[in-house]
Amino acid sequence: MVLGIVLALIAGSLVSLQNIFNSKVNERAGSWATTTLVLGLGFLASLMFGLIFEGKQIFNFQHMQTWYWFSGMIGVGVVVCLVQGMKLLGPTYATSIALIAQLGFALMWDSLGWLGLEKVPFTPQQLIGVLMVVGGIIVFKLGGGRETQKSSELT
């Protein structure tokens, strides 16, 4: 349990840093040049770690299914939707909604167990926990004085 949470905390910290770095690139290079660079570097870094930890095993695609090749398109969908959402709503509201949607879909996924992931049974307690986190996001993002914010709007 603790290991999973620690790993998720590491992931979140890196997402925060990555968002700030990427937004700096975005300002100068535009969103598609930035996305291309970001995914290209992500690919090289993943390949490198794979070679370090697994050697040639990384090229073993025995159990590959066709749709795996298309999973990268999801990342492109993320960029399209967030860029459009921010254009139409402004960053604060767009990111608040996106954060809440992340959690809502996470809860749905756990309870339905789609794609063969282990099902986590839906309980009222889970719903209360998620609502609490969602409330926290809303208070964090929209509470108090709404001065113009810069980096926190982008995550």
Partner: peptide, 27 residues
């Protein structure tokens, strides 16, 4: 920044296997 994705994906995926999607995304 893009290179962080390797570690983000690894930690995210391992966390989802350990504690499920909801708890992972919340943390």
């Amino acid at each position: 920044g893009g290179s962080f994705a390797a570690i983000i994906i690894f930690t995210n995926v391992t966390a989802i296997h350990e504690v499920g999607v909801t708890l992972t995304i919340s943390a």
